[in-house]
């Protein structure tokens, strides 16, 4: 099973991407989305998702609000901001550049 380390640098990208497709998700749902959409390959240490979310919130890429669910429990749901959308574009192109470069190396050797 990949260690959380393998997510380093791409966790922000994944969270932003997921939120751009599916607005208004809480932490657990984001985590589940990462797991499901990656075909259960990518998996974060669940708790470390939250400091990352809070950091992105401080950076102004996402915003949060509390909602009350039918069960009466409160949940904190996240949404992409305009700055987050821009950040997503930047991260995405950076990721593509990096993977393209890595692929080139793999093909050449």
């Amino acid at each position: 099973m990949p260690k959380p380390d393998s997510l380093q640098g791409s966790l922000d990208l994944l969270v932003l991407k997921i939120l751009s497709r599916r607005p208004r998700l809480h932490g657990y749902a984001i985590m589940s989305a990462i797991k499901d959409w990656s075909g259960e390959v990518l998996r974060a240490e669940e708790g470390s998702l939250y400091p990352a979310l809070h950091r992105m919130e401080e950076a102004g890429w996402i915003r949060a609000e509390w909602v009350t669910k039918e069960s009466g429990r409160r949940a904190r749901i996240y949404d992409l901001t305009a700055a987050g959308r821009k950040q997503l574009d930047a991260e995405e192109s950076r990721w593509e550049a990096v993977t393209a470069a890595v692929n080139r190396v793999l093909r050449t050797v």
């Binding site: 985590m31 669940e46 939250y50 904190r76």
Partner: peptide
């Protein structure tokens, strides 16, 4: 309190699932 509540809600969500 808010941070703790959010973390607790994560566990609760997991149990609900």
């Amino acid at each position: 309190r808010e941070i703790d509540e959010e973390l607790r809600s994560h566990i609760a969500e997991a149990v609900e699932h």
